[in-house]
Design a protein around this nucleic acid. Sequence first.
DNA 1: TATCATACGGAGTTAGGATTCCGTTTCCGG
DNA 2: CCGGAAACGGAATCCTAACTCCGTATGATA
Lengths: 197, 197
Amino acid sequence: MTVTTATRPMRADARRNRESILAAARELFAASRPDVQIDDVARLAGVGVGTVYRHFPDKQALMGELVRERFVLFNERMRTAVEEGEDEPFESLAEALRDNAASVAGDAATRFAMMSGGERVFEYVGEEKEEFLRLARRLVLRARRSGELNPRFQAADIPMVMCGVCATIDKGGWDWRRHLDLVIEGMRAEPSAPPAV
Amino acid sequence: MTVTTATRPMRADARRNRESILAAARELFAASRPDVQIDDVARLAGVGVGTVYRHFPDKQALMGELVRERFVLFNERMRTAVEEGEDEPFESLAEALRDNAASVAGDAATRFAMMSGGERVFEYVGEEKEEFLRLARRLVLRARRSGELNPRFQAADIPMVMCGVCATIDKGGWDWRRHLDLVIEGMRAEPSAPPAV
DNA sequence: TATCATACGGAGTTAGGATTCCGTTTCCGG
DNA sequence: CCGGAAACGGAATCCTAACTCCGTATGATA
């Protein structure tokens, strides 16, 4: 149960600064590796380091929030797939994966968290991560029933695969779409099992 | 062309120490993440830090040597596959990949180099890396000719895939063999193309 | 075994960054 | 328009490693 700290209002400037900080962090993490420095975030956000620390206890927390926001996007995409992919179960799953990978391609913070980032970062994403897995399970189940998905593939494999693709993106110089396509090919049911349409 | 610095002899104790250092580094990197410290390596090797730096200009160089040695093992395995897998082209390639992945599972230094590690580390592996790609090309070509390999799969995809699996291993908590199997499944030729045996 | 080029040890230096501290400034309710 | 709680700014502090330096020890050669 995530504590929904019922902090009342929040001064206007504070709210504004919090947003600036997140925006700056997003921008810096978008291109660079996770070695973005708090001082840079502060500068770009137009605030002092102290202010960053007022809003986020430490760097991990800041990254955590970025990751959480990313997961919100993931989940929106997954939900769309659930709602609109009834007639193409496998393809809708695959497309959701492709889109999410593309989305993470511009977000080093999330990539880092997904790979080497300690569990710490994910502490701030608990709820969204759960929801993600829930949606993943639905998509996987449906695709499996359609007979197009390799029955051994599990919803929990999705984060693992995403982690792998993240590494590829991070390293740069490779065509990660190729990597993802390969994996998606591997997810397909073997021809032996005729689709039970 | 790697410079084969024709340094003559090398004092006996020096040679011995160099080995101790490498052994210690291997041991420490085997379990831990790449945050192993030079001081720890020195202590375990029973030498002073200065000695480590006498043998390796910097940390990258030390890791580089570890990676190089790992690649030598990779190559031995690949060579075996080339020599003994004539009748099972696809399987021999797949098995070589599995074995190499297992081998890298106990070597954080190489994992690191393969993923986030800067190019620096690979500077020391030039020759072995070339050889690796050469062997990979042979295996891929042969498997492709047999019709069992997806014709779109290229030898250069192997490092990419390995990188992905490394990330999975590194993150821990996942069954990377599963990941690799998935990828290998994706490498298989689609049923449409009947094996041209 | 004397000589000295090689090697060694490890305290000390340096540098990059995260995090803290506290005097000052800015909101907001009354 | 006031008082004080809530926020700010950013210089200073602390830490964590990598790496350097130089006096000492040791293997190899004549």
